[in-house]
Simulated assay, not measured.
Amino acid sequence: MGMAAGAAAMAAAAGVAGSGKTEMPQAGGRFRRIRQLGEGGFGKVWLAMDTNLGRTVAIKLAHAPDAEAEERMLREARALASIRHPNCVRVYDLVNEGEGLAIVMEYIEGRSLSEVISQDGLLDDVMAARLWVTMAGALNAAHSKGVLHRDMKPSNVIVDDDAIAHLIDFGIARKRGDSTLTAAGFMLGTPDFIAPEVAAGKSASPASDAWQLAATINYALSGQPPRGDQGDPASALLAAARGGGELHLPEKSAHRAMLAAALQPDPSRRPTLGTIEREVGTWLSRGGFKQDGPVTTMIHKSQLAKTRVAPPKPQPTPPQAAPTQKTPGSNPLGDETKRVDEHRRPPHPGRPGPTPTRKF
Rank of each mutant, 00 (worst) to 15 (best):
L221I: 12
T180C: 06
R269N: 07
K153D: 02
G137S: 13
A261F: 05
G177S: 04
F186L: 06
A236T: 01
G41D: 08
D232P: 04
R256K: 15
A236M: 02
V116Q: 06
L259D: 01
A136K: 00
A234H: 00
K44H: 08
G18Q: 04
D192C: 09
D161C: 11
P311A: 14
R72L: 13
A14F: 03
L263D: 05
E197Y: 11
R256A: 12
E68Q: 10
D209H: 03
G334D: 06
A5W: 07
A200W: 00
R72Q: 14
F360M: 12
H348W: 12
A67N: 06
P354Y: 12
V116R: 11
H85D: 09
R78S: 11
L37C: 06
K202L: 10
Q224L: 08
R308P: 03
A183F: 05
Q26A: 15
A173T: 05
E279G: 00
R33T: 13
P332T: 02
T327Q: 15
D178P: 00
S203G: 08
T182S: 14
P354K: 10
A79E: 02
A321E: 12
L53Y: 10
G243F: 04
L94D: 01
I108N: 07
S19L: 09
G2T: 14
R308I: 01
Y219I: 02
Y92K: 02
D151S: 04
G98F: 12
S205R: 04
A142E: 01
P226G: 06
Q264H: 15
D192Q: 01
K359F: 02
P349W: 04
G350I: 07
P226Y: 03
I164H: 09
A128W: 04
A9R: 14
G41L: 08
A310S: 12
P196R: 08
P332C: 00
D93M: 03
A195C: 02
E279F: 05
L53A: 05
D151N: 03
L284M: 05
H248M: 10
L94M: 11
Q291H: 08
R227T: 10
D120H: 12
T272S: 15
G2N: 15
P206L: 11
A17K: 13
A17D: 13
Q212C: 13
P328S: 15
V295K: 01
L247V: 10
V89I: 14
D120Y: 09
A141F: 01
Q315C: 13
R174L: 14
P318H: 13
K21R: 15
P319W: 08
L113D: 00
A8Y: 09
G121T: 10
R269E: 10
V295T: 03
A322V: 14
Q212I: 02
A261E: 15
D266Y: 07
P267C: 06
L221M: 04
A207I: 08
